[in-house]
């Protein structure tokens, strides 16, 4: 037996990236703005999306959501209450969504009839960072209860995101949240990222966030 070198030079996630490119082209052709929302569990992702969807619908936009969860369709049911179509992707233990799941679950949805598609990723700050889902942009959520240094603990997910939303800002005083320190740690791992602070509960910052989504949609 003789050793022999076989050059490969191929990305391990090429297959995912290829499907993601196909999805991105479909979204662009249908003029639907797709947002991949990532965060740790319990960051207020579902609540934020629920309130965001209500506001977008009130302003005449057509919205749909794909929700990834390990188990249960509780989040999907909560989001359906906001009045937009929702499909649940139960990943059966998988800790992240992959592009082929998006393709499969989109199924026959008429993308032409949508302005926004939100993808609520599985609550996890590690795994989703490696997987492109064909989104127009990736939003990472950090709640004030998680600590200002969280971005420093999970650089890849923050670095790969396009926008940061700090949630539960109504609790900031109670948990002695240091906004300046949080902004500094986000910008340290992801220089130049836009950061928005919101409270889905009280509505603080929600207009700025929704305006930004609409601006982004119009620019596409």
């Amino acid at each position: 037996m003789q050793p022999r070198i076989l050059q490969i030079q191929q990305g391990v996630l090429n297959k995912n990236d290829e499907i993601a490119r196909g999805l991105r082209a479909r979204f662009a052709a249908a003029q639907v703005t797709t947002v991949n929302v990532v965060s740790s569990p319990g960051s207020g992702k579902t609540m934020l999306l629920q309130k965001t969807i209500e506001r977008l619908i009130a302003r005449g936009y057509r919205v749909a959501t794909l929700v990834g969860d390990l188990e249960t369709d509780n989040d999907a049911r909560r989001l359906a209450e906001a009045g937009a179509p929702v499909r649940q992707i139960t990943t059966a233990g998988n800790c992240h969504l992959e592009a082929h799941m998006i393709e499969e679950y989109l199924g026959d949805w008429d993308l032409e009839a949508l302005d926004f598609l939100f993808i609520e990723n599985v609550g996890n700050l590690v795994c989703p960072s490696s997987y492109d889902l064909g989104e127009a942009f990736r939003v990472v959520i950090l709640s004030v209860t998680e600590g200002e240094d969280k971005p420093l603990k999970y650089p890849p997910i923050f670095n790969s995101s396009d926008l940061a939303v700090i949630t539960k800002i109504d609790l900031a005083a109670a948990v002695e949240f240091d906004s300046e320190a949080a902004h500094a740690s986000i910008l340290s791992v992801r220089p130049g990222m836009s950061i928005i602070e919101v409270s889905a509960k009280t509505g603080v910052g929600m207009d700025a966030w929704v305006d930004l989504l609409i601006k982004r949609h119009k620019s596409e």
């Binding site: 050793p3 022999r4 076989l6 490969i8 030079q9 191929q10 340290s188 220089p191």
Partner: peptide
């Protein structure tokens, strides 16, 4: 993500996102 020379923050990443197979060593 700061320049090691002047300290300015930068997102111009030239290496560090790789996840690729370089080569195999086969036994034939």
């Amino acid at each position: 993500l700061a320049c090691g020379n002047c300290g300015a923050l930068t997102m111009d990443i030239r290496q560090g996102k790789e996840l690729s197979i370089d080569y195999l060593e086969l036994e034939t």
